[in-house]
Design a protein around this nucleic acid. Structure first.
Length: 424
RNA sequence: AGAGAAGUGGCAGAGUGGUCGAAUGCACUGGUCUUGAAAACCAGCGUGCCGCAAGGUACCGGGGGUUCGAAUCCCUCCUUCUCUGCCA
C-alpha cells in the first residue's frame, strides 16, 4: 500500500508512476485519496477535542461524587450525555472515512522504479541477458510431456484421479529428481546466508492482505471457505508475514529467509494452448528467498538476489535469459522485477522460472514492518523476494534439453542429490 | 472434539468501576562512582493517530455492549494451559 504522506509530498511523481503502468485515471484516484485523508485528519481532530472535553467532565464527576455534591454531578452527567451522541456520530464518520481511504489505497498498485522501462505488455520487457546460442535438438526431440510418459516419471492421469487436472503425481526418478532439486536449492541458499523456515501453507486473510495478494488476487487463490483460510500461491506470503507488526533493530538487518513449500494457484481461465505438461499447474513446488532490508541497501540486495538465482541456473547448465519487466507487466505490488526464463528446447519456447522483486515500502506499509534506527526513530523497511527456483518448468527444461538416445542426462550439480545421472 | 482455567508493557507480575497508560521486579539505554569491570546510586525506557509545538486522543488478546466514566461488569470470537477423548 502506498504511503499517503508520500503521495501528498510528491504527487506529480506518483501520478507519473501510475500512468507509466498504464493507469488512466491516476490523477483522479490520487486526489480522491488525498481528499479522504484530509477528511480523516480533520475528523480525528474534532473527535479528539470532543473526547477531551468529555473526559474532563467525567473526571470532575468522580470528584464531585466523592465530595457528596450529588446535584452538581447530575448536571455534569447531562452534559456528557450530549457530548456522547456527538462523539459516537463522529466516531462513525471517522471509521467510514478510514475504510473508504483503505479501499482506495488497496486499488492502487506500487509505482515503478525509475529504472523500469515503459511499456504495456511483455513485448516491452528489456532483455538484460540471453544465452549466446540456443540449444538445437534434432527433429525427433520430444516435448517433456512425451518424455515423462515414456520414462514413467510423472503421471498426470493419476493426478486427475486423485484430485483433478493440474495436480501431477511424481513417481520414481521423477520424484527423486524433484527432491534433489529442492535440496540443491535449499543448500545453495543456505550457503548464501539464508535462514531456512518451514511456514504453514495455509494463510488467513490478514496475511493475504499483508503482502498484497488480497484483495487484488482473490480469485487466484484457493479459498477454504468453512475456515476462511487460503492456500498459499507462493511462500512469499507466509514468510514475509512472519514480520508483520514487527520492529527490528537496524543492526539485525538484513533478514534473509529461504523456504520450500508447495504453491497452489487456481489459474482461473488461463487454460489454453501453452499449458501442457508441466508448463502450468495448480500445485507446484517452489523454493523462495525473502529478504527484509534497510531502504538504503535494498537495491544492492535486489542485485544480490538476482545473482543468486542466476548462479543456480548456471550450475544447472540451463540456457536462460534475464528480463527486466516493463511497467505494464510489473506485478501489482512490485517496484521493480527481474524475470528469469529457461529455454525449453523441444517446445522451442521460454519458460518463466523465477521472478525477483523489490517491493520497497509497499508491503512493509501494509505489514507495519519497521526498523528502529540509532536515534530510536522508526521507519518502514523494504521487502524483497524471488523464486530460487520454481520446480516444474526447471524439470521440463532439464528433461527436454537433456534428452539423448541413451536417456535423459541430468545436470552434474544434481548427481549427488539425485543418486543417479541418467533417466533411462 | 468435551470440561475447566487464563490472556495486562521485551519478560515476570500487581491492579475488580473514577487523576491507571497502568505499581513493582528483571532486562535494556544514558549518567555518577571505578584504573577497567561488577555492584550501588540517579535518570530514561510501549505503540498508533491529530498537532509546528505544547499538548490532545486511542490502545491492558480481537470485536461489540452497559455506564457520566471500563484493564476492572456483560456478550461474543480467538489463543494458551490443565484434564478427558482422538490422531501422524
Amino acid at each position: 500500500m502506498l504511503i499517503v504522506s508520500d503521495i501528498r509530498e510528491n504527487r506529480p511523481e506518483f501520478i507519473a508512476g501510475l500512468e507509466k503502468r498504464g493507469m488512466a485515471d491516476a490523477t483522479a484516484l490520487l486526489d480522491e485519496v488525498l481528499a479522504l485523508d484530509e477528511k480523516r485528519k480533520s475528523t480525528q481532530t474534532k473527535l479528539d477535542e470532543l473526547l477531551a472535553e468529555s473526559n474532563k467532565i467525567s473526571k470532575s464527576i468522580g470528584l464531585l461524587m466523592k465530595e457528596g455534591k450529588q446535584d452538581e454531578a447530575n448536571q455534569a452527567k447531562a452534559k456528557t450525555s450530549e457530548l456522547k451522541s456527538q462523539t459516537k456520530e463522529l466516531g462513525q464518520v471517522l471509521e467510514e472515512t478510514k475504510q473508504e481511504l483503505d479501499d482506495k489505497l488497496y486499488q492502487i498498485p506500487n509505482i515503478p522504479n525509475e529504472e523500469v522501462p515503459a511499456g504495456n505488455s511483455e513485448d516491452d520487457n528489456e532483455v538484460l541477458y540471453t544465452v549466446d546460442q540456443l540449444p538445437e535438438l534434432g527433429d525427433d526431440a520430444l516435448p517433456h510431456w512425451e518424455l515423462i510418459k515414456n520414462y514413467d516419471i510423472i503421471d498426470f492421469d493419476l493426478g486427475v484421479k486423485i484430485t483433478g487436472a493440474g495436480f501431477p503425481v511424481y513417481k520414481g526418478k521423477g520424484a527423486r529428481l524433484q527432491r534433489a532439486l529442492v535440496n540443491f536449492f535449499l543448500d545453495e541458499a543456505d550457503h548464501q546466508g539464508y535462514d531456512e523456515v518451514q511456514p504453514p501453507v495455509v494463510i488467513n486473510e490478514a496475511s493475504g492482505r499483508g503482502t498484497g495478494q488480497l484483495p487484488d488476487k482473490e480469485g487466484q487463490m484457493y479459498h477454504i471457505t468453512d475456515s476462511d483460510l487460503y492456500l498459499i500461491p507462493t511462500a512469499e506470503v507466509p514468510i514475509t508475514n512472519l514480520y508483520r507488526d514487527v520492529i527490528v533493530d537496524e543492526k539485525d538487518l538484513p533478514i534473509k529467509n529461504v523456504g520450500f513449500t508447495p504453491c497452489f494457484r487456481r489459474e482461473a481461465g488461463s487454460w489454453g494452448a501453452h499449458v501442457r505438461g508441466l508448463n502450468r499447474l495448480h500445485q507446484f513446488d517452489k523454493v523462495e528467498i525473502v529478504q527484509v532490508q534497510h531502504p538504503d541497501k535494498s537495491f544492492d540486495t535486489l542485485i544480490e538476489m538476482r545473482d543468486h538465482v542466476e548462479g543456480l541456473l548456471k550450475r544447472l547448465e540451463l540456457p536462460y535469459r534475464i528480463l527486466k519487466l516493463c511497467a505494464g507487466d510489473l506485478g501489482f505490488t512490485s517496484n521493480i522485477t527481474y524475470d528469469f526464463e529457461v529455454y525449453s528446447a523441444a517446445q522451442k519456447r521460454w519458460l518463466e522460472v523465477s521472478s525477483v522483486s523489490n517491493f520497497k515500502t509497499y508491503q512493509a506499509n501494509r505489514l507495519k514492518l519497521r526498523y528502529r534506527d540509532a536515534d530510536n526513530n522508526k521507519h518502514l523497511l523494504h521487502t524483497l523476494n524471488g523464486s530460487a527456483l520454481a520446480l516444474p518448468r526447471i524439470i521440463a527444461a532439464i528433461l527436454e534439453n537433456g534428452q539423448t538416445p541413451e536417456g535423459i542426462k541430468i545436470p552434474a550439480a544434481l548427481h549427488q542429490y539425485a543418486g543417479f545421472e541418467t533417466i533411462s
